[in-house]
Design a protein around this nucleic acid. Sequence first.
DNA 1: GACATATTTGCACAAATAAACAATCATTAG
DNA 2: CTAATGATTGTTTATTTGTGCAAATATGTC
Lengths: 97, 97
Amino acid sequence: MDATQELADLLKALGEYNRLSLVYHLCDCRAPQNAMCLCDCCSVDASVTSRHLKVLADEGVVEVAKKGRERIYSLNGKEIATKLRQLADVIEGKRTD
Amino acid sequence: MDATQELADLLKALGEYNRLSLVYHLCDCRAPQNAMCLCDCCSVDASVTSRHLKVLADEGVVEVAKKGRERIYSLNGKEIATKLRQLADVIEGKRTD
DNA sequence: GACATATTTGCACAAATAAACAATCATTAG
DNA sequence: CTAATGATTGTTTATTTGTGCAAATATGTC
């Protein structure tokens, strides 16, 4: 897939209130969290949170690990931060790519 | 409005293929462009480009200047880059805010 | 004024999206 | 095995979004 499309998809995944809240929550906790814990930070149904987490996982924003019946989500911080900084550099004219 | 919501809106504005292409195009040109020129980088109707540019303008990604019957769009590079880097820092755990 | 050019707006429509709720699957506890 | 818990999936509904085309607006040129 097109690199522009891939980046657009990542930004779109982050560009929704509840999903961005989930990301922030994972930042605050500074530790992986299970889905139900993350659920608390959004005032939506657990099923909705589950789907939002799936979107984030599909875009590589978070990673999932199975632990018994729980799913532990952790932030893919370094990778996402790098992509955001690359975009920032391009937008600011520091890069040509 | 909520700061999280504002950032989500910005990311959403950038998170669409044609809009991100417009931003890239403005980076490449390294100079303000009128709408018709920008139009060429997207294979969509001029009216569609016009609407996309409006979304970007509403989010402060681009600024508009009237010049005769043309509208000259310029990238708000520094400001957007800063916001992206701040998010990158939060995601990477370098900031608490 | 008449006409051309640049851009936006109104309208219609299909596709995507977010949400709730019920039902289901998976795993652990008793 | 049965019940309870964590999480996902199916379904439906309402809303938003991206798009094209025609019409309208704004400005410049002859």
